[in-house]
Amino acid sequence: MNTEAQRRIIRLPEVSQLVGLGKTAIYERIKEHTFPAPIKLGRASGWVAEEVQKWGETQIAATRGGH
């Protein structure tokens, strides 16, 4: 993955679309430390795209019996 993609910040609607979870489910998992926490962008928040993608890959691997 290139450096630009690694540093890309995405907002909640895109996070939700990528992982198939709603806002409440995402924030519950953040509270449980099972989902990447957002970073502060002034008054707003965003997620590092690579962290969200890795989380998704981990979920797929766990479901498929991978490591």
Rank of each mutant, 00 (worst) to 15 (best):
M1S: 15
M1I: 08
N2K: 12
N2P: 09
T3R: 14
T3V: 14
E4T: 14
A5W: 06
A5R: 14
Q6R: 15
Q6I: 12
R7T: 11
R8E: 15
R8Y: 03
R8L: 12
I9N: 06
I9S: 05
I10S: 10
I10W: 08
R11G: 06
L12M: 15
P13H: 09
V15D: 08
S16N: 03
Q17L: 07
L18Q: 11
L18S: 03
V19Q: 11
G20N: 10
G20Q: 10
G20L: 09
L21F: 13
L21S: 06
L21C: 07
L21A: 09
K23M: 08
K23Q: 13
E28V: 07
I30G: 01
K31I: 02
K31W: 04
K31C: 04
E32A: 15
H33S: 12
H33E: 14
H33D: 14
T34Q: 13
T34I: 06
F35K: 06
F35G: 07
P36R: 05
A37P: 05
P38E: 03
P38L: 01
I39K: 06
K40G: 07
K40C: 04
K40V: 07
K40Q: 12
L41T: 11
L41M: 14
G42Y: 03
R43E: 09
R43M: 08
A44P: 01
A44C: 03
A44Y: 02
W47H: 01
V48Q: 00
V48E: 00
V48G: 00
V48K: 00
V48P: 00
E50H: 09
E50I: 12
E51P: 03
V52C: 05
Q53L: 06
Q53C: 00
W55A: 01
W55F: 03
G56W: 01
G56S: 00
G56R: 04
G56T: 00
E57N: 12
E57W: 09
E57R: 15
T58D: 13
Q59N: 09
I60M: 11
I60H: 01
A62Q: 13
A62R: 15
R64Y: 09
G65P: 01
G66N: 13
H67I: 11
H67K: 14
